[in-house]
Design a protein around this nucleic acid. Sequence first.
DNA 1: GCGAGGTGATAGCACCGTTATGTACCGTAA
DNA 2: TTACGGTACATAACGGTGCTATCACCTCGC
Lengths: 224, 224
Amino acid sequence: MYRKNVPRKPDPNVRSTLIEVAARLLAEDGPQALSTRRVAADADTSTMAVYTHFGSMSGLVREIVYEGFARLQDYFSQIKETDDPVSDLCVHGRAYRRNALANPHLYAVMFGGESLSGFELSEEDRQHGRYVLASIVGCVGRCVEQGRFRQADPGMVAHHMWFAMHGLVNLELGDYLIEPWGAQECFESQLVTLVVGAGDGLDLATRSVAESAQRLDAELGIRA
Amino acid sequence: MYRKNVPRKPDPNVRSTLIEVAARLLAEDGPQALSTRRVAADADTSTMAVYTHFGSMSGLVREIVYEGFARLQDYFSQIKETDDPVSDLCVHGRAYRRNALANPHLYAVMFGGESLSGFELSEEDRQHGRYVLASIVGCVGRCVEQGRFRQADPGMVAHHMWFAMHGLVNLELGDYLIEPWGAQECFESQLVTLVVGAGDGLDLATRSVAESAQRLDAELGIRA
DNA sequence: GCGAGGTGATAGCACCGTTATGTACCGTAA
DNA sequence: TTACGGTACATAACGGTGCTATCACCTCGC
């Protein structure tokens, strides 16, 4: 009488599979590939699975944002603390940019595309993002303690660092940076400017920035 | 025999009307209101007008981006050149932020939403954006000439300024900034940090930044 | 007057997010 | 063991999207 409906047995992995597939689609085929039908098809299920587990497409995107912050956190956790806190801070900046360039669409969803593209982040989501960034404040605090940076609120200085890194990376991903002010060259001199602005001397700042460049590949292995 | 088609006489203003309506929809109802049917209905025409005059929805959005840069240009052109180039530079920074906060969705389309939301900017569009920003380079050049900033490429220093302003504004629009590091407070101290990082002394920088705040309302009238 | 080209109104396509409906499976309780 | 209730999910449909094909109408050069 009725059609065959043949739902297969409930798959306990379907939730994580959907997130994984969605993140892969975002990375490989861009944001326009993030549709319920495409994700469901690639995960070998139906669109309803998205609504069962995430409530809506926005819910799935929300999980992808968390995945993005987890990858950034992963980079940060690999950075070793040395006796040069300014170098440590610069490595954080380099890791921030490396993560963004390795996951450009993910980064765009995390920061750029909240108002666009129809979906919105909740205050809880943004708080989670801020928490990941909070590890930088410790670095700045040590810079102040050791007299490298002038007396200031470490949280505020960390925000300055964040703004400059985010602005550069965002414009780099938007192809706004061209020669003779390419992204890499801008990045290096921007780091020096920020460190000097925070209170360090020019020579000392230049040395720490240069040192941080060599630490990057040593401490941050290539990750998928 | 055939249907009544009743196209009215070709309206020479329909192109500019579409841009105007689209910009208003973007400002008032957000990006999701930017649909061919909605724009056409509000402009009292059909969706075909969009394709006749702009080729696609992306073409219309492209025009909106130019409108956004025109507004920014408008702010910049109102700034008077004084004998304190650092103050002039800071006023440019303040105007940049004021324009972004006055046209948040427009700003998001200009910089944030290129990869997202399906549409893309051409290299020509981005070049036009860079050209608008180029007026800042002159300011930085005078800072270097007068010995306020250390010897450096003015274009590079202008880029540093741009990155920091764009990063702050972008995160502010994304509601990522909360107390005790609110946007306004971050903005003020960020300006000082940038100016000091470029080479100015702390006292001199603080004074020019404070002076620039008073110039803002005097030189930049409120505009729609 | 008349043909040519441009403008735009209508209808349709494929796709989107989302929802309603119904079926198969599960753990639990009788 | 059997019956039940809740969950997972397959299907189909609804209203929306960008875009295209078709065709009526207007304006312009001749």
